[in-house]
Design a protein around this nucleic acid. Sequence first.
DNA 1: GTGGTCTAGACCACT
DNA 2: GTGGTCTAGACCACA
Lengths: 123, 123, 123, 123
Amino acid sequence: MKPEWREDQPIYRQLRDKVAEAILKGSLQEGDALPSVRNIAVEMQINPLTASKAYQELVAEELVEKRRGLGMFVIAGAKDRLLSAERKQFLDEEWPTMVTRIKSLGLDIEELLKNAEREGGQE
Amino acid sequence: MKPEWREDQPIYRQLRDKVAEAILKGSLQEGDALPSVRNIAVEMQINPLTASKAYQELVAEELVEKRRGLGMFVIAGAKDRLLSAERKQFLDEEWPTMVTRIKSLGLDIEELLKNAEREGGQE
Amino acid sequence: MKPEWREDQPIYRQLRDKVAEAILKGSLQEGDALPSVRNIAVEMQINPLTASKAYQELVAEELVEKRRGLGMFVIAGAKDRLLSAERKQFLDEEWPTMVTRIKSLGLDIEELLKNAEREGGQE
Amino acid sequence: MKPEWREDQPIYRQLRDKVAEAILKGSLQEGDALPSVRNIAVEMQINPLTASKAYQELVAEELVEKRRGLGMFVIAGAKDRLLSAERKQFLDEEWPTMVTRIKSLGLDIEELLKNAEREGGQE
DNA sequence: GTGGTCTAGACCACT
DNA sequence: GTGGTCTAGACCACA
């Protein structure tokens, strides 16, 4: 797995998002240890400090806890909390913006739906 | 009208988007003059240089032209060009991303779209 | 003013505390600009990144806001918010611990009071 | 009894403090044996090495002595020595800091102390 | 000018 | 082993 970083966001933010997604998908279960800062830095080919910054964001969001000398672990309830927080964020902010945009572009709902099905083979 | 700027994009980009939106909505007709850089800077409470940068973007996109000594004007055909460009951008990039996001949150795209249609027939 | 850093806390935390104290004391008024990251780094003889970390803490606490391209500014209401937050922290956590400690050491209240007056010439 | 560890101090220091407190309170009398490193490690859910480090601190402070093959025991005179050492530490360092803090928060030291006296005659 | 990000490398405390 | 902190120096976007 060769990580590729987008330019539109800082790397640490993207790494945070990757971990959050892994929690949502269940590939990181609650109670699981995250890869160590050093390991993930090597794997992702980034500076350990950058990786650490991503982890600190997760700690601040209370999705992950630090156990001193042991590492970082997914907090119990993290998945639920994350899911509801993201849904709220989506429904309150992202989707209304998107709806406005769709309308101002005069796009056809049916067409968008077909579009969504076409690419949505996976999941 | 107190403008509020988001943190996720530079101000000049957001101003550019506002103007583009105005063209799409028709509140800025083709041939209309844009507010002067100075005026809009005062009104939006931003640095004139920032306002100027927004206008330069619009010029680069060929939505607006500078008439020396007169100001900036919406180019004929701007609305159509803008509409098709934004539609392409939307369908190629924004919508697929949004679809992925909706699915990862376990939400129902069809329901969201139908709701959007029902609620705000006109924004 | 030659800054001296204690060993018991990271520098960025101590710098954050200095700024917070300046807000409490009023030497930094609401709306005032903080010294730039670079300037304070030079003045305090620390790395700009360390200074930046202190400022980011203050932003996270909503005591300070970033105005892009301009610098950091004390938010309106920062002083009040800070004062009540610190009082709460003190009364809920620090003081009860201190009381327990005083009792377990069997110290005399009157003596402590005299002590407090003696050093409390200022303020 | 589920021990909870604060983040502001290393676990071994907090454990040392717990033992010292027990000596002050008399729940550990002079001559008493301390729980074995292994037992306390299990009970407190910490690494035995961490527990051992706490005990070593107590030995270094001459509050506790190791009797080979038998375990760790509270030294005669430990309580008095501890009491005077902690009082000195408290009056010289902790109390002055606390007084400064109370004043900077605009709170009334006398009132706080009187309240403390009235409420919990015994902790 | 402003702050933000990243790197490379060092040192530290904790478990 | 773990994460945290700091430095020195670079580059970038924004106003």
